[in-house]
C-alpha cells in the first residue's frame, strides 16, 4: 500500500551510480507550482503511482483527477479544463500519450494551442518492459506536431526547473519524465533551464557531443574520460527539442565539425535529425555519428544491459567519438 505522496515507481539510479539522487523531483516541483498557482490541476490515467504525481494528489486532493485507463480522455479532459482557464498537468507514459492519444493532442492541444502539459514517463530505454512500454519514437512524433513544445530533461535538477517554467508558459507542452529516484547531474545552483535554449555544459575543440535527456549524463562522462587521453570534447545539452536552438547547435558545429549526437530515442526523427537538418539547411559540413536506438523495437532486460546492447552506454559513446576523430577532416564546401 502506497502512502499518500509516496512513489512506488522504479527510478533510473541503476543507470547513474555515484550521483546524488532526488526522489520524485517532478511531483515535488508540481506541489510547489500548485501552491503558487491555484489553477494548476493534476490529472493521470491510472498511473499516478508510477509518474510521481501522488505528492500533488496528497497536497491538493480537490485538484487531482484520475480518469482511469483512458488516455484519449485524459487529453480531452485536459483540453477542456484548459479552455476554462486551468493549467492541467497530465501524466501517463510516453507510449500511451503518443501512440494512443496522438489525435487528441493534435486537435485538442496543439491545433487549438490549449494550455495543456503532458508529462510522459518511461522515455526510451528507462524501462526493461520491452516494446510495449519503451517510448522510443515519441520525440519524432511530437517534434513533427506544429505548436507543441517538446522537452527531454536530463536529470532531477532540470525536471524541477522545467516543471516550474512550463507552468508559467502559456501553451501546450510535451515533457518526458524521469521518475522515482532521479540522479542529480546538473548543478541546481548554476544550471538554468529555459524553453528553447541549449546549454554548452563543457567547452571542447576536438569533438562535439550534442545530447538530450538522460544521455547528457553519459556524454559528460564520456567527455571527462576523453580528456584523460588528451581529447578535448564539448558537450551541448539540448533539452528542448522544439523549438530547436538552431543557433547554439550551428555555432558549435562551425567550430567543431566532428559531432556525436546522443539521444534516448531512435536515431531518426529526433535530435540527430534535427542537428542534421540544421546543418544541411545552413550549408555546414560535418562528420556525424548518431548514438541512440537503431531502427528496431528493443528487447526486455535490465537497463545497463539494454544501454550496452544498443550501444548507448558511456563506453559506446567514447568509442563513437574515437571513430569520428579518425575520420578524414571535413573539407570546406567546394566553390562553384
Amino acid at each position: 500500500m502506497t502512502k499518500p505522496g509516496q512513489t512506488t515507481a522504479m527510478g533510473v539510479p541503476e543507470l547513474a551510480e555515484g550521483y546524488p539522487e532526488v526522489s520524485a523531483p517532478f511531483g515535488e516541483a508540481l506541489v510547489n507550482v500548485g501552491r503558487q498557482n491555484p489553477k494548476v490541476i493534476g490529472l493521470t490515467a491510472d498511473l499516478g503511482k508510477y509518474t510521481d504525481i501522488l505528492s500533488f494528489a496528497a497536497a491538493f486532493p480537490e485538484r487531482y483527477f484520475n480518469v482511469g485507463m483512458a488516455e484519449q480522455n485524459l487529453i480531452g479532459i485536459a483540453a477542456g479544463l484548459a479552455r476554462t482557464g486551468f493549467v492541467p498537468f497530465c501524466t501517463t507514459y510516453c507510449v500511451f500519450a503518443t501512440r494512443r492519444a496522438y489525435d487528441f493532442i493534435a486537435i485538442g492541444c496543439a491545433l487549438s494551442r490549449t494550455n495543456v502539459k503532458i508529462i510522459a514517463g518511461l522515455p526510451g530505454l528507462t524501462t526493461g518492459y520491452g516494446g510495449t512500454h519503451q517510448g522510443i519514437e515519441d520525440l519524432a512524433l511530437m517534434r513533427a506536431m506544429p505548436n507543441l513544445t517538446v522537452i527531454d530533461p536530463c536529470d532531477a535538477t532540470e525536471i524541477a526547473q522545467a516543471t516550474a517554467v512550463i507552468a508559467d508558459y502559456d501553451g501546450p507542452v510535451y515533457m518526458r519524465l524521469l521518475r522515482g529516484r532521479v540522479p542529480v547531474v546538473l548543478d541546481p545552483v548554476t544550471y538554468r533551464f529555459e524553453i528553447g535554449k541549449a546549454r554548452l555544459l563543457r567547452k571542447g575543440t576536438d569533438v562535439a557531443f550534442i545530447s538530450t535527456g538522460l544521455m547528457t549524463q553519459r556524454t559528460l562522462e564520456a567527455a571527462a574520460q576523453l580528456a584523460n587521453d588528451g581529447v578535448s570534447a564539448a558537450v551541448l545539452h539540448v533539452s528542448t527539442l522544439k523549438p530547436f536552438d538552431r543557433e547554439a547547435v550551428l555555432s558549435l558545429i562551425e567550430r567543431v565539425p566532428r559531432v556525436i549526437t546522443a539521444e534516448n530515442h531512435v536515431t531518426t526523427g529526433g535530435l540527430a535529425s534535427a542537428v542534421a537538418d540544421a546543418a544541411t539547411d545552413a550549408g555546414l559540413r560535418l562528420r556525424l555519428k548518431r548514438v541512440g536506438i537503431p531502427d528496431c523495437f528493443c528487447e526486455c532486460g535490465s537497463l545497463p544491459y539494454l544501454a550496452k546492447r544498443y550501444q548507448m552506454d558511456t563506453a559506446s559513446i567514447v568509442a563513437a567519438a574515437r571513430t569520428v576523430l579518425e575520420e578524414e577532416p571535413v573539407l570546406p564546401a567546394a566553390v562553384a
Partner: peptide, 24 residues
C-alpha cells in the same frame, strides 16, 4: 468553443469544461 472535425473529441473536452466550471 472547440475545433471539431476529428470525431470523438467533443464529449471529452466537454467533461473537462464541466469539471473546470465546477472547480471555478
Amino acid at each position: 468553443e472547440m475545433t471539431g472535425g476529428s470525431l470523438g473529441h467533443g464529449l471529452g473536452q466537454g467533461v473537462g469544461m464541466a469539471l473546470g466550471l465546477r472547480l471555478a
